[in-house]
């Protein structure tokens, strides 16, 4: 697992820097790769950090373009997308990195998998 220590977040969201370093990635393939490596405790910690801040983060992102270039905005969106992907694994799938009783997700090919955001 790679930690990205240089992710700048918008003012007011600096406390989320550690989870952004751990989870925020620009592409679906990279986000999925992190998810496949994660365990129940990782998903729970992500939820604990994000749940109280998600509303504020989305409010901030409402004023950003859908594919922002400004680094802090872009990192904030990467973090929101990472949570969008990871949250069901805590909330629905009991902390499993895989969807229970499912097809092998690694065999699903997203056309957009390497597209940034």
């Amino acid at each position: 697992m790679t930690i990205l220590n240089d992710l700048i977040l918008p003012a007011g969201f600096e406390d989320l820097a550690p989870v952004a370093a751990r989870w925020a990635r620009p592409t679906e393939n990279e986000r999925n790769a992190l998810r496949f490596e994660a365990g129940a405790a990782d998903f729970a910690a992500f939820r604990d950090a994000m749940a109280p801040r998600l509303e504020a983060l989305l409010d901030y992102l409402k004023d950003c373009p859908p594919n922002p270039e400004e680094p802090a905005q872009r990192n904030a969106l990467m973090l929101a997308c990472a949570y969008a992907e990871a949250a069901p694994h805590h909330e629905l799938y009991g902390g499993s990195a895989e969807v229970p009783f499912s097809f092998d997700a690694r065999r699903f090919v997203p056309d957009h998998g390497n597209d940034p955001l």
């Binding site: 992102l61 409402k62 373009p65 859908p66 069901p88 955001l117």
Partner: peptide
């Protein structure tokens, strides 16, 4: 239209 909608679409898509 904005980054918040983008993230929400990512969630629904996932």
């Amino acid at each position: 239209k904005n980054a918040a909608e983008r993230a929400a679409q990512m969630h629904v898509n996932a």
